[in-house]
Amino acid sequence: MAVTGERDSLFASGQAQTLRLIVYLTAAVALMVTDHHSGYLERIRSTLAALATPLYRVAQAPVEAARWLHAAASERVELKRENDSLRANLLLAQARLNAARIETEQNQRLLQLLDAGRRYRLSGRLVQVFDIDIDPYRQRLLLDGGRDMGIQLGQPLIDAYGLIGQVMTVGSTTTTVMLLTDPQHGVPVRNARTNQRAIAYGLGRSDRILLPTLPINSDVQVGDELVTSGLGGRFPAGFPVAVVREVEPDANGMFAQAFAEPYARLQHSSELLLLEEHDAGTDVGEWPSDGVGPPTLPADEEAAVEPVEGETRP
């Protein structure tokens, strides 16, 4: 067996090898092009991805072991301190949340006064990120869960700091997320200070996104906060996205462009919040609240509805 193999490789005609190369490369290119342009390969992939899940779990195992070791080895005192600081943070966050709830309520009433068509209520659910590494140069994440969890195409994701991206493909048990830093990704944003609107595009780097072609005289400063504007309807309004780090004229000097640094910890998140928007009318009760209840942003709506009825009446 080995001997014939030897002879094959020594005396196989170069032409046959080259032909084989060409055939396989063409096949690979054809597959890539079809994958890029059509959806049917995606369906095959999402079916087969279920088979890959055990492999993901195996690759995940050393990380979990390391985490466990770390937890076991770290001092009690240290854990206590960490616990204390976390509790303090939680209290603070809770207080802010309460303040925000009151404002949301007011906001809701004002919106109703303005007769702004549809009202949404937001809920979220925690999803686990597969801590496997796809490729640091591809701005993607893989989630543990897919159609089985009711994840849908285009759903936005956030972490505790800001916007992460959106669901790109949903498999039966896994989900691919396109990060907002992907070159194909754009998100409508609003400058929180000036209310100027723009679209932020990914650059393929995890620490920068780009606001191209701003009017040259526009008031954008380093340190400005960018939040989602809610235009286009894919991302709900008001979530922090990035902070402006550089502003400069673009190549031909006709426009300004700004580079911003995403708030979200794109490389280090192990749990993310998947946002779900409902028309206010639909029932939210179907969402299972496994441990962490879906935080419903607007407060009880009947309270918001009653007074408005009275006040709009002339």
């Binding site: 490789s9 090898q17 396989y24 597959l31 991805a49 796809i134 893989l142």
Partner: peptide
Amino acid sequence: PRNGRIGFAFCLGLGADLLLGTWFGEHA
């Protein structure tokens, strides 16, 4: 060495593409 190494590399690459979510055919 054996005949079919290139074919094997192709299949191994397709498997990797499935696992990693790269374009189908890139690793191949």
